[in-house]
Design a protein around this nucleic acid. Structure first.
Lengths: 145, 145
DNA sequence: TAAAATTAAATTGTGTGCAATTTAATAACT
DNA sequence: AGTTATTAAATTGCACACAATTTAATTTTA
């Protein structure tokens, strides 16, 4: 009885590990035209909403630290998608804002969610179930910090 | 109506992306004593069952290619966990076998699934639901190769 | 206010993960 | 048999991801 649960646990972790890479692979294809990675796309999604966010705020929303964000944002800056400048109010903070070029990608990206739905092609009901399950396990995982 | 589904899609992908990192973080803690990473632990799980597998077979089971496996297996070899030798039957193939030291880790690892269950602490019923949902989306994702 | 503590990014170092290419061995074909 | 095609690893190059440390700025506190 117990060992079933243990095996199941392992399966679930491995499946999440595998699903993450499959999703990244799918996004790689969909984002090829925009010349951005999936994590960069996540940053853009936030900046298309808010225009400007500090590195700290981006980190809080994406659960990423400066060790990941700093070099990634520098690459996005080099590609002309974002600007980085120190906050005048607090010189410790770095404000990231989306450039016109970055803003322009929003249009090209409009079709991506549709394409994603096509590729995954699951019933809305099943997607809701999956969403609820993921919310539940994320709450558990993140409750330990 | 459609746009809700699209948003949901994005949420699910981001949640899987986040959950994968939270799970890896949890495993990092649990595997610290064994001095292996989560992907290395997955290799060991297979080798504890089969003792010897080719790089190709490991890749098929873990959905990883030689670009990932070769350097990882070399690190595991350096740490004395596995041996790598060319197959006599087919010199193209490299056979990975677990060493005594690698075998010895199996005992230390016995408690990991229990600790995992403790940390996640979800009802078996919810775990089954999540497992089914993940199987479903993985089938969808992997059906496109 | 001066020293100590905290905070935000950046940096350093290690380990994946994968596309693309290369190398070597085997299989298939003419 | 000799050429071509295929296959299995390895290699190269790039982009995360994160622990640990460092640097600089701001707060807190004595």
């Amino acid at each position: 009885m117990k060992s079933e649960t243990l095996k199941l646990e392992n399966q679930i972790c491995f499946k999440i590990y595998t699903a993450e890479r499959e999703i990244t692979k799918l996004y790689r294809e969909l984002l090829k035209e925009l010349n951005v990675t999936y994590p960069q796309y996540l940053v853009l999604l936030l900046l298309w909403e808010k225009h400007s966010l500090s590195v700290k705020e981006l980190g809080q929303r994406l659960f990423l630290d400066s060790g990941t964000l700093t070099p990634m944002l520098k690459r996005m800056e080099i590609n002309g998608l974002v600007e980085r400048k120190r906050s005048a109010q607090d010189e410790r903070s770095v404000i990231i804002s989306v450039t016109k070029k970055g803003e322009a990608l929003k249009e090209k990206a409009e079709c991506i969610p549709d394409q994603l739905v096509e590729n995954i092609s699951m019933k809305k009901e099943d997607l809701l179930l999956l969403n609820n399950s993921l919310t539940s396990i994320l709450n558990q995982l993140q409750s330990h910090q």
